[in-house]
């Protein structure tokens, strides 16, 4: 696949003797939403962190827009690819605007303050994510859904064409889940490539263009989302049974254990 903005070749990552990622090969096409699924401990979060080199892989290569990721400086890499982490606890009172402005860091020189151009980009990100209304609130006073939106705004501010999201919806209520998915669809329309770890398989099937299934650190399946939900796949990866049920509003998935 030549149009793949992220290409992973023989990627391995281990902590001590524990193999977390075992020879992963995968391609992620430009301008699509890619879901990464798998049971807890399958290596999803590790995969994300090695893709954007927050953690250094033991062996193997990640190509970002055709370039070996290890050959790209940290600063430039941060302009190409950015991670939206799961919610983290912050002990300091930081205003949403200042928090979002951190995303400009890779674009600024050491002693440079925000320029008008940067502020415009921040304002735009606040508007797109619908977080403009709490720009002056403190980050540690936001709800889970609100702070997830703010984290996405911060990722947009980097202007990186590739956005990685680590479980963006797992702690959210259904309304916020759908709001995030709608936002991701909008970002896709703007040309962003999105990779996200996601636990909610139904949500993944509806909103992702491709699905990548991980099992015990190995790639089990990569391909279109529809094909991914064959019952033998689900049984082998998640150890549960699956049934589709169709209503007037579409098909939904039913999972159960034997």
């Amino acid at each position: 696949m030549d149009d793949s903005i992220v290409q992973i070749r023989n990627l391995c990552y281990s902590i001590g003797s524990k193999q977390i990622l075992d020879n992963i090969n995968a391609d992620f096409a430009t301008g699509q939403i890619h879901g990464i699924v798998g049971p807890n401990g399958a290596g999803k979060s590790t995969l994300m962190r090695t893709i954007c080199r927050i953690w250094q892989a033991n062996s193997g290569t990640v190509y970002i827009a055709g370039r070996d990721q290890r050959q790209i400086s940290r600063r430039e890499l941060s302009q190409l690819i950015t991670l939206v982490p799961q919610e983290s606890r912050i002990d300091f009172s930081i205003r949403v605007f200042d928090f979002v402005s951190m995303g400009r860091h890779p674009h600024l020189h050491r002693l440079q303050w925000l320029q008008n151009h940067d502020i415009e980009i921040i304002e735009q990100a606040l508007l797109v994510t619908d977080t403009e209304r709490f720009r002056d609130r403190y980050i540690n006073q936001l709800s889970g859904g609100e702070s997830q939106l703010v984290s996405i705004a911060r990722a947009l501010v980097t202007e990186a064409p590739i956005i990685l999201l680590d479980e963006p919806t797992s702690a959210l209520d259904i309304q916020h889940k759908l709001q995030i998915m709608k936002l991701l669809a909008l970002l896709k329309k703007q040309g962003k490539t999105i990779l996200m770890n996601i636990h909610d398989l139904d949500l993944a099937r509806r909103h992702c263009d491709t699905l990548t299934m991980l099992r015990q650190g190995q790639l089990y399946y990569q391909g279109c989302a529809e094909q991914a939900f064959r019952s033998e796949h689900i049984r082998e990866v998640f150890n549960v049974e699956i049934e589709e049920s169709t209503t007037a509003h579409g098909t939904s998935l039913l999972f159960y254990t034997q």
Binding site: R49, C52, I54, R74, R75, L77, S78, Q79, T82, L83, P85, S88, I90, F92, I94, F99, M102, G103, H105, P106, T158
Partner: peptide, 11 residues
């Protein structure tokens, strides 16, 4: 905020 995020933003 977080060392991981610092790395993420090019620090």
């Amino acid at each position: 905020v977080s060392e991981e995020q610092a790395r993420n933003f090019g620090v």
